[in-house]
């Protein structure tokens, strides 16, 4: 049994390491040109060599992503409350929201850049756009998810709408909020990079763009790996917060 548990734990790292070895050996034995597919060892040395540039550009992208995500969160929560609890605005706004949601937001990146210039603002705006809708739609669904028997219970106590909101709707909506946030944060990183592709002087998207343009494929790989790492860490951070806030199971 004990051995079995160790096998289970070790399985994933072992498989990953094996894949890396296969990659390394394939590239070496077929002498694949570096600009097409660099070996893992080459990517690693390049990453070390370019560490300061990777770090500073990574930080730029991280900040754009985080600021855009938090701004989207702040904007979507009141919007969700309005849509969930008011009749007329809901009937006018929600169809528009659902329509806007289907626009591929990254396709707007060139336009947003045209309107807002070259700084961080267009990148943050794109991140806000991609994050806003998944959070909004999930929170609206969450605010409406309170089960009827629980609503009846609150009503039987003559609870005010505010009291019902605080004591019932918010806790019920919380898991939905986190679902929205986890979808949004994955989109957020993509949004930031695409916005950087359009026009930028810094950021990982910019680094990927210029390194591929100069056939510096190992550096592009290193930047993509760092980007993946940022994405995974942000997702994990949200999950940590979720676990701390939602310590119940239905």
């Amino acid at each position: 049994m004990r051995a079995n548990r160790w096998t289970k734990r070790a399985a994933t790292p072992v498989v990953y390491a094996a894949l890396l070895v296969v990659w390394e050996l394939t590239v070496r034995s077929f002498a694949v040109p570096q600009w097409i597919l660099p070996a893992p060892s080459v990517i690693a040395t390049t990453a070390l060599q370019w560490a300061p540039e990777l770090a500073s550009n990574g930080l730029v992208t991280l900040i754009e992503t985080a600021v855009g995500f938090l701004a989207a969160l702040l904007l979507s929560l009141p919007a969700a409350a309005v849509i969930a609890f008011t009749d007329l605005p809901r009937r006018i706004l929600y169809p528009i929201v659902l329509g806007l949601q289907s626009i591929p937001k990254v396709a707007l990146a060139p336009l947003v850049t045209l309107w807002l210039g070259l700084g961080e603002l267009p990148k943050i705006t794109i991140v806000i756009l991609v994050c806003f809708f998944p959070i909004l739609v999930n929170v609206v669904a969450g605010l409406e998810a309170a089960p009827k028997p629980m609503l009846d219970l609150m009503r039987s106590l003559n609870a005010s709408p505010m009291m019902t909101f605080r004591r019932l709707r918010v806790p019920v909506a919380l898991p939905h909020l986190f679902t929205g946030c986890k979808i949004a944060i994955t989109f957020a990183v993509i949004g930031a990079v695409i916005a950087e592709f359009v026009a930028a002087q810094r950021g990982l998207g910019y680094l990927i763009l210029i390194s591929t343009a100069q056939a510096q494929t190992p550096l592009a790989f290193a930047a993509i790996l760092l980007l993946t790492l940022i994405s995974v860490l942000l997702f994990y951070a949200i999950e940590r917060v979720e676990r701390r806030l939602i310590d119940w199971s239905p």
Binding site: P149, D152, L153, R167, I246, W248, S249, P250
Partner: peptide
């Protein structure tokens, strides 16, 4: 007291 207990899980 409702048929379902309707306790808040949180």
């Amino acid at each position: 007291v409702f048929q379902e207990h309707v306790l808040f899980p949180w």
